[in-house]
Amino acid sequence: MPEMMKLGIVLMSVSLVAAVALGLVNGQTAPVIAVQKEMARQAAMTAIASSLSPGDSLAFDSIEVEGLENPYAGVNEALEVVRVSAPPDPEALGYLFLAYGKGYSSTIQTMVAVDLEGVVTGSIILYQGETPGLGANVAQPDRLIGRLAGLTGGECLLKKDGGTIDAMTGCTITSRAVVGSVADGLESMRGAGLFGPAPVGGAS
């Protein structure tokens, strides 16, 4: 019994020291991590919203849209839509939204800028944990993610699935996750009436 006690005490003290050390460091780093995440988000918003209206300083307001279906059930609670405007002018210039798609080894988070007609003007990957050197290349602006501009929701399809976008070699699942999640988000926003009636004689 005494030996048992001794073993228990050793284990307990090792764990105690470890827990205290982790708690202290977490207290230091957690705020820094939160700030960093927020900054990355702001930077991404500014970067891709500039495709809606280059050169203006823009304002971002999160909005609640009535009748907006969440196409990302099971991945995220809601489709988050941000309204973009250039401050003195209250008119909306377009919207930003976050698309979530299940990729090969992670849920890929894409931020998309879209104009009032529902045409994508810019997109950026906020988070992905795909295979380094392969699927992870999806985030490079000159690869897949940069080729969505100018498309509407219905046109967001890989060549393999009858669309016009080249999938990245060796990462069809990743490519499909990004393209599909963007298309779902756009369709859902169109369904909620954000883009007005389909443009007459438009390409879509």
Partner: peptide
């Protein structure tokens, strides 16, 4: 550290350092 519980102790020590690296790198 008594040799009977050395492996759990090592794992706690290693896991602690890994978590520290993880948090510091993330920040």
């Amino acid at each position: 550290i008594p040799s009977k519980v050395r492996i759990p102790c090592y794992i706690v020590i290693i896991a602690t350092f890994v978590t520290l690296v993880d948090m510091v790198m993330n920040a």
